[in-house]
Structure formats: C-alpha cells, structure tokens
Nucleic acid binder design. Structure first.
Lengths: 362, 362
DNA sequence: CTGAAAGCGCTAACAT
DNA sequence: ATGTTAGCGCTTTCAG
C-alpha cells in the first residue's frame, strides 16, 4: 500500500486540495493496474489496451489527478522548458516578440521561463545561470551586443542550444555556429534612410540610445552610412541619448540651434523616436512640417499615434515565433549546435511605413 | 561507484558540456565526502565543518557543478516557482508590473513562470492548469473579471495560494479569503473626474474597452458616476470601443457630431486614451484646446508624449512587487488561504497627473 | 498487453 | 560532524 506514507508530511489535508497530492500511484491503484500501465495510458496510449486506458483515465478524473511535471522532467532528463531572456518588456518590441514566443512554444508543448536583463551584462550572466539551473532545454535571447557577449561565449562553451532574437549573427558569429532570427538591420536601415533622402532630405542625423552597447544600433547606423554614401551625402556623427525613454529636450534643442540644422532624424528605435518627436514639439517645432522623424521597430503604438510614426517595421511576433521554431529544430537534430550547416542568421522581411512623421524638408 | 551508470544515456559527451551531467554525487566523490555532506555544504553550511565545506565547494567549482533544481524541487515538495498570469504584455501597464514582480521574486529567491491570457477566460483556465502542473507554489494574476471568474473559483476550491494584481477584491470576494493588490479604482477614478469637473467640464463621457468584461472598467465607471453625482451632473452612458488598441475614428466622429458634444473624455486606460487623442486629431480637433482627455494607468509612455497624457497614475511595478510579497507571506503562514484575517484588498496610493491633455473646456 | 523494479538528482531523517 | 538510507513522482527497460 504505497499510498499511506504520505501522511508523514506536515499537515496535509487529505481531500481539501484535489489534484494536489494525488499521484499516479493512487490512480493506478484506483484503476487496478500497475503504476507502469497507468503511466503508459497517458504517455503511450497505443501500448495499452483501449479498455484499460479508459479505466485509468476515469480513475484519474475521479481523483482529479494532476500529473506532476517535475517527476517526469527529472526522469526524462529534459524539461521541455525553454528559457527566454529579453532586455525589458517595457519596450513594446519585446512584448510583441514575447507573444510570438509564447504562442509558438505552447503550440509545440514547451514551457517558458522568462527573465529580463535590463541590457546589463552582469545581470545577463546571472539570469542565464539561473535558467541553466532550471535545466531549460535551450534558450531564446536578445543580448545588448552579441559580438562582445560573455554570456554567449559561455553558452557556446557549454554547447547550450540557443537562438538569438534581434541580434543579427554576422560572419564572425557564424563560425561559432550561432543562430539568429532578425531582419537585415543594415539593409533595412539603409532603405529607411533612402526614403528620407527620396523625400528631399540631405542633413539627416541618427539618434540612438546606448550606441556603443547595442550591436543593432551600430548595424543600423552602418545602413545609414550606406544610404548617405550611395547618394554622395555626408554621414553625420550619431547623437546618443542617455536613456531609451527619457526626454532629452536640452540635447535636441542644442542640435536644432546649430548652423546646419538637420531636417530629419533617424532614431534607432520607435520609443526613442516618440520621445524625440515630443521634444521637438516642446521646442515649438512641428513634425513633419519642420522636421521629419523616422523610427525603427514598428511597434503597434507607432501606427496609433497621430501623425503615425514613419518607421522600419520588423515582424516582432514572428521573430519570436521563428526563434522558438529554430530552437526546437536545433534541439531535435541533436544537442550539438555546431553540426547544423543550415545555422546562421535567419533574416525575416521588414517593411517600410512612410508618410506620417516623414515629409519634405522645410 | 554510483557515477558510472550515466553512460547508458544516449550520446552523452563526457566533458563537452561542463556542468551538464555533473551531479552532486560526483562532487561528493571528488571531495571525498558523502552525498549528504556535499548537499549540506550547499544547503546548510552551518551543519558542516568549515574545512569540509571548503573542499566540497572547490570540487564543485573544479567540476563546474551546476545543481539540478529539479531534483531538489521534487524532493522538497515545493518548487519555489511562482506562476504569473497577465492579460498581455503589450499594454505597458503589465510590462511595468512584471518588472516589479520579477525584482521582488528574484530578491526572495523565487522563480517565475509567465503566461498571458489575452483576456480570454478559456485561455485563462488552460494556462492556470498548465501552471498548476508545474507545481507552482502560488500565483500572481490579473483576470478580466474577478467577480465572474471560473478560474478563481477553481483556485479557491483547490486552495491554491494566489494574489490578484489590479483586480480589486470587493466585499463579496473577501469572503473567499481572496487577496488583491491594486489602487482604489473607484475612488481614484472619482478623483480624476473631479479634476475634470474642477477644470470646468460638465459633459464628460467615459470611453472604455470591453466594458462588460472588465471589473476595473466598471469600478472606474462607478467612480465617474460618484464624481458626477457629487456635482449634480448627469452621468452619460459609457462608450465602448471594441479593441484596446485599434483606432476608432468613426465612433469618435459620431460622438462629436451630436448636439451636446462632450468637452472631455475619461478613458479607462492610457492606451485607449492615446488612441482617442489620435482619433480626435484626425478629426481636426486639438487636445486639450477643443477637447480634454484623461487616461488611467500612468504608463511611462504617457509622460513622454506631448502634451503629456493627463491620467490617474497607478504604481505599476509596486503593484507587482507587493503582490509577490503578499503571496510569499501567504505561503509562509501555511498553505491555507482562509486563515489569514489580514487578507483582502491591499490598496496602494495612486496619484493624479493633470495638465497636459486636460484643459478648460472651449 | 501488463507488471516489477531501477533509478533521474537531490534532501532529510536517522544513525553513527 | 559526517555517513547511510529512503524516498519525491514519474518513465522505462526488462520480464513475463
């Protein structure tokens, strides 16, 4: 009678908590089958006679049995849990991405464990270690700078399967067998800036949050340089605004007070763009009448405001969904990241949303 | 030699994956102590001689041992994992709340499992079941309508410890021993509307997303009625906009075309408010010159736009942090939710942000 | 098709 | 202070 030993546990109220404390052994007992058969009735129904399976399921329902995933996971030596590390959810880009991640993981029967890093490398390491202790089967993550990431190096060393989202693996990263899902940051930024140029702009300034720390900001800046160069225009030095969200009226004012005041801003993300537009308004400037602003990300909010934010649109939830799919595939084809020749950067199509905050120069 | 049996597992590459596959038994062996002592060196260092503990830790580092939380959790019969169910992260309110939840949980050594419900009751049940299978010790959640929530009833029945965030437990909920952390929705909304009235507005219309489905929308509407009544004004019927984010220019136009056109809108959340402001602009109306708009939530973005969104500010990340703290306390004081007399609604202070999109009526 | 039994990695009595 | 041992709930050979 393997059921009676549970009474040693402190203050377990027998029937007050249905499903809590009912084990597969109890179900087996109630269905008058062995533990093994009960297990099979759930995991491998084809290995058990129809009628027997029925009995087991009935007993399970009657006892409101809830399988304890912990036991299964421990035994199976794989958790079917995916770790997800994103910089923050307060930037809608990542919130939208999470939607894709969750949908994709759920659809494949995988669970998720989310942590945020706040773009802080120290926290990145700590959180990853934390995910690893939970024995996640793999991870989807966005790091500040993939090219200089201690945490990715560690993951490579331990050959933990992972897929980057948004960070775009470059030639150098490919050697490590890294995988990534993103848009083509450089080409898409170039396209966006070309649209600005096509609208008549010549003095275009890039505005970026932590420029040095973000690989994407740098890639997008390179795209800007490409576009400017292609049209024989001088690339201006980027302006770095301290925070991703705070208003920086002072810096903007200074910029607009210079001799050759820019006629357009290319902000490396939408949140920043929205902040810049507000700063501009505060200075009495109208957008796009006096200055044009182009963002990057394509968060839903951008389409909501008036005028709509012109921007380079990434398929955020798709990026998340594909990252999971990619990771799952990697898991299936053996734990070793390095054997998959199809690895590297998966580039998803971007689109341009123009009009709105982009117009002709004054 | 309990270490050699692991070789039966399929394709385990011995030293390629440090930490992966190294068990406490290996560490014990290397440190020449028993499994129990090795365990104690980590969990109860005071029960072990200094020098011994040292040896164990060294061995652990040398083998890059990473504890498998699964084993510990299974044995401990508590996972130290908290489930979190939020409607969506794409509304910044919940993203901000998550920040508080994560910080608070991490600080207390708890892990998190996040799911989103999309305000869909069916998905709510499914996701909660999912969390329960993972044996979360308790949950923090926000449901569409706490008063009519199947999932909360289930949680009550099974006496799973949980704390509501944003949903405000009312007298009826208190009987079930429910806990919640929120602002005082009704009083704060009332205050907000009074500010509108103080600015000179008389014809104030409430705009809400899914009104019938959201308890908070209803409570905030009640606050609006209180304010109107207190000033002898007629409460107008609320306007329900289908989506939380979509633009609804047509409906707004219709509203503004009526004889007694409202001079102010009270939107039951900030995202909605931002949408309404854009719709108004599209109709050629200026905010707050022609119409005033008051939001509710206090998302960071609202302070960023120009003019800044007038709104009722909730301490979102605090709500999350307190919900976790509350839950942890509940877990400590025994699993039974119903014995805690201190239960009920924890109300956090709200603030008002006026000016910006609220001005005098035309 | 079903059962018995051996663990997955860890912790906590219970002995020394 | 340390070792021995018995499981946590589940899956899965290996035998019948």
């Amino acid at each position: 009678m393997p059921t009676s030993r549970r009474s040693v546990l402190p203050s377990r109220i027998a029937s007050a908590e249905p499903g809590h404390g009912v084990t597969l052994a109890d179900v087996a007992l109630a269905a008058k089958v062995s533990l093994a058969t009960a297990s099979r009735a759930f995991s491998h129904p084809q290995l058990v006679r129809e009628a027997t399976a029925q009995r087991v399921h009935e007993a399970a329902k009657r006892l409101s049995f809830r399988p304890n995933l912990l036991g299964a996971k421990l035994r199976a030596q794989q958790t079917r849990i995916l770790g997800v590390m994103l910089p923050t959810l307060e930037n809608a880009v990542f919130a939208e991405c999470w939607r894709g991640i969750e949908a994709s993981a759920m659809a494949s029967g995988y669970s998720l464990m989310l942590v945020t890093s706040g773009y802080d490398p120290a926290r990145e390491s700590e959180r990853v270690e934390y995910l690893l202790r939970h024995r996640v089967d793999g991870m989807v993550l966005t790091v500040a700078d993939a090219a200089a990431s201690i945490v990715l190096d560690q993951l490579d060393r331990e050959s933990v399967p992972y897929v980057l989202a948004y960070n775009q693996v470059t030639a150098q990263g490919t050697q490590h067998g890294r995988h990534s899902v993103s848009v083509d940051n450089r080409a898409s930024a170039c396209e966006g800036v070309k649209a600005l140029i096509a609208a008549g702009h010549r003095r275009i300034v890039v505005v970026s949050g932590a420029f040095m720390a973000s690989d994407r900001a740098r890639q997008r800046f390179a795209g800007y340089e490409d576009a400017m160069r292609a049209h024989g225009l001088a690339a201006l030095p980027p302006v770095c605004l301290p925070s991703h969200t705070a208003s920086n009226t002072a810096q903007i004012r200074e910029l607009m007070a210079r001799a050759d005041t820019p006629t357009a801003f290319f902000c490396t993300n939408d949140l920043l763009a929205i902040g810049v537009i507000s700063d501009l308004k505060r200075l009495g400037l109208r957008v796009p009448r006096d200055v044009s602003v182009l963002g990057y990300d394509g968060i839903a909010l951008g389409a909501l405001v008036e005028p709509p934010l012109a921007t380079v649109v990434q398929p955020n939830s798709e990026i998340g969904a594909h990252a999971v799919r990619q990771l799952l595939q990697q898991l299936k084809s053996g734990d070793n990241t390095h054997d998959d020749a199809a690895g590297g950067a998966l580039l998803l199509p971007h689109t341009l949303r123009v009009g709105g905050t982009v117009g002709a120069p004054p």
